[in-house]
Design a protein around this nucleic acid. Structure first.
Lengths: 136, 136
DNA sequence: GATAATCCTATCAAACTAGTAGGGTAATAA
DNA sequence: TTATTACCCTACTAGTTTGATAGGATTATC
């Protein structure tokens, strides 16, 4: 299941992309427009900023804004930051690989074989979509 | 993340399929072979039986066995029973559809648009794999 | 220096996960 | 018929995660 954190993060990003201005947008405005708890959104935008997707400005007239162009923001990167690993099991994860402690051999593991395909399917979608694709 | 329930369920099914006999296999044997807590596995096999994947026999010489041929067991069905919806958001789920309460319009929702593709990718994999494919 | 906005930490209730405990029930074999 | 085997079933629980909320600290503008 997709977490609300990811869902809200995606909605915030697409809202900022659709605004089509580089002026900072306040958290309250995004929260209101997307029906999100403002305080919760606050923490999400913070992690998006810390991971290089957003810039921020404090004080009056402040807010958040996109740093890159929507066409340059790949969903793979967004998903990894908000949701974590794209793979459903660590033993097929590219960026978060971990060996299963109960599985003696990955090469003969049915779960591994299946989830590898699922991961590739998801990756293909995420790589094929930028923020720009989601708003068009 | 794939739940251990699903992981163990898949491993149990593939073990039964690889055994290539219609004699009942005891829970203890599966648990031992796949490094799974026996009691936990017990409940998993129970749901697999209730959902028409397994048959069981009580008493001495009893155990679980596959009801259908491995080639006839689609991963879509297995995943839905063990893991639940294949879609990551209810609003793109085929079998568990639900409207998002925060989203005014699915047709213009970026999350919807993205997750629809991810669901299709996953479905394609699950539909393309039977239990037989996982053990070959 | 007042105000507006982000920044940051801590806390929390509810739900979920991965089991564990403990016995009940049916089939088999002696 | 009695003992044993093995599935059947319900309830409970420790630990983790999720989706927030509270309350203020910090910084920029006017």
């Amino acid at each position: 299941m997709l977490s609300k954190k990811t869902k809200y993060g995606l909605k915030a990003l697409t809202y900022l992309a659709s605004i089509d201005t580089k002026e900072p947008v306040q958290i309250s405005e995004i929260a209101k427009h997307e029906n999100i708890s403002q305080k919760f959104l606050e923490s999400i935008l913070l992690t998006l900023r810390r991971n290089g997707f957003l810039g921020s400005k404090k004080g009056k007239g402040g807010g958040y804004y996109l740093i890159k162009k929507p066409e340059e923001i790949q969903m793979t990167a967004v998903m990894r930051v908000l949701e974590g690993p794209i793979a459903m099991v660590p033993c097929v994860s590219l960026n978060f690989y971990e060996k299963c402690d109960d599985c003696p051999d990955e090469n003969t593991c049915a779960v591994n074989r299946l989830m590898l395909q699922v991961r590739d399917g998801a990756l293909q979608v995420y790589r094929n979509n930028t923020l720009a694709d989601l708003i068009s």
